[in-house]
């Protein structure tokens, strides 16, 4: 049974059809890539899958259960761990505090006993700190434990954000451009990390990524989005040599490129609105 199944997802923003009948499937322990030119609707697809947007049409199924209209925080508790295109962390807090914030649902005590400060709370806090430190060690960020994340470099932030997503104790990880802000070497290293994470924690992943070598190396299956439609899918090698994909990335015909540019601007406006 697939972990995540998306059927005929469609969403409009005003006159813009951001996604048109998009379907994809992620199987257990797979790392699936979602690629496409800027403005293709990749992040929009993520937002529909994780519940931040409600699609106008289509269905999202998680382990056989329909979760199309489930709220994001409920999905997070079900096992959806996600990162954001721009880093999604509490900038005023330290790395440790962020990792503990991400463990909110796993704290092991409720709000009321938290306010009374009973033993359960202290134990829960200790366990969260231990888990947070383990994640910092795992990512090689132990020395950032008490640093405020606001001042960290972008690449480091992206890595720490991955740590926060891990701290939510996910079943499926949805990573939105995990290598942005990283150099080629760091990107390679991140690829290794993703493979290790899959092996160690039995994770399933859906990854939006632009860095082609990484996609080729870690992904089992790749979907290509263009103008909100699924352009192609297959193994990384199949997709790489697909004529439509090459056309989409290299510009194709002029009218299409113009349309892409305007759609992208539109998309940006929609998102910032």
């Amino acid at each position: 049974m697939s972990v995540l199944e998306v059927r005929d997802l469609s969403i409009r923003f005003g006159g813009l059809q951001a996604l048109q009948a998009v379907s994809l499937e992620v199987n257990e322990f797979e790392i699936v890539g979602l690629i496409g030119p800027n403005g293709a609707g990749k992040t929009t697809a993520f937002n529909c899958i994780t519940g931040f947007y409600t699609p106008h049409d289509g269905a999202v199924t998680y382990r056989g259960k329909d979760v199309t209209k489930t709220a994001p925080h409920v999905k997070a508790r079900m096992g959806f761990g996600r990162t954001f295109q721009n880093v999604g962390m509490v900038k005023g807090a330290t790395a440790l505090e962020n990792l503990k914030t991400a463990q909110h649902a796993k704290a092991g005590y409720d709000v009321m006993s938290g306010l009374l400060g009973v033993g359960k709370t202290r134990r829960g806090e200790r366990e969260m700190t231990v888990r947070a430190e383990a994640i910092l060690d795992l990512l090689g960020l132990a020395q950032l434990r008490d640093k405020r994340v606001g001042g960290l470099s972008y690449g480091t932030l992206k890595l720490l954000e991955l740590g926060c997503a891990l701290a939510t104790d996910p079943d499926i990880l949805l990573l939105d451009e995990p290598t942005s802000g990283m150099g080629p070497e760091e990107s390679d290293e991140l690829g290794d990390r993703l493979l290790v994470l899959r092996r160690e924690f039995g994770l399933t992943m859906l990854v939006i990524e632009h860095h082609v070598p990484l996609v080729l190396r870690v992904c089992d299956h790749v979907y290509v989005l263009n103008f909100g439609r699924m352009l192609a899918q297959g193994t990384p090698l199949e997709v790489q040599s697909h004529p439509d994909v090459i056309a989409a990335y290299l510009g194709g015909e002029a009218p299409e490129a113009l349309a892409a540019a305007s759609a992208e601007r539109r998309d940006d406006r929609e998102r910032s609105a």
């Binding site: 994780t50 931040f52 709220a71 994001p72 925080h73 997070a76 508790r77 761990g81 996600r82 954001f84 999604g88 962390m89 509490v90 900038k91 005023g92 914030t101 991400a102 909110h104 649902a105 926060c164 997503a165 939510t168």
Partner: peptide
């Protein structure tokens, strides 16, 4: 700081 990030962390905003 950010309601969406909070939701992604499983926090009922």
């Amino acid at each position: 700081e950010n309601e969406r990030v909070a939701e992604a962390f499983g926090i009922n905003v």
